[in-house]
Amino acid sequence: MSLELKHVQITRKGQALFAPICLNIFPGETATVMGASGCGKSTLLSAICGSLSREFRLKGEILLKGHSINPVPMERRNIGILFQDDLLFPHMSIGSNLAFALPPGMPRYLRDEKVKHALGQAGLEGFEDRDPATLSGGQRSRASLLRTLLARPKALLLDEPFSRLDHGLKGQIREFVFDQVKKMNIPALLVTHDPGDMAEGPLIDLTTHR
């Protein structure tokens, strides 16, 4: 179930953004890629999840559970991603936002139950019918993480998900995220510019990684 980067490098107009990266992330572990803004760390994440824009080229191989996912379109990769912004769909209730991520083919009562259960786990009991806009920042980022996890991803990417949170909230959400990664036993990759965000797993510093 591991996520493996084999000599992964991204080029733009023939210029490499960073030296080739080799990284093996085991299930339940969160690796960190550090670097200042503009060093290409978010681009690396979009390459892994499959949304690399056309101006960039990907070299090397990305393996999920030992299979190369380079040619697989984004929607079939089964990789969850959490952004800086919560990106909850503003026109749907919290419940619908979460149900949207559940796999198809479940009767409605079961979907409702799963959503309820997930909300309970994150301290958001009874939030099914709430408008995302009425939630606090911390509640929104927890809901956003729940939505990502309900899709049962085989790996999780974290694109500076804590950078918009207040200092006090940061630690709490961080712990919640790493806990969930361990519980689901999936590999996770965090990119950040803030050394305080760092996870316990392997670390690559792109500023020195030239």
Partner: peptide, 14 residues
């Protein structure tokens, strides 16, 4: 682009 990325990462076709 962000909405598309979220939707597709949840497994939805564009």
């Amino acid at each position: 682009n962000a909405t598309m990325a979220v939707g597709r990462s949840l497994g939805y076709r564009p």
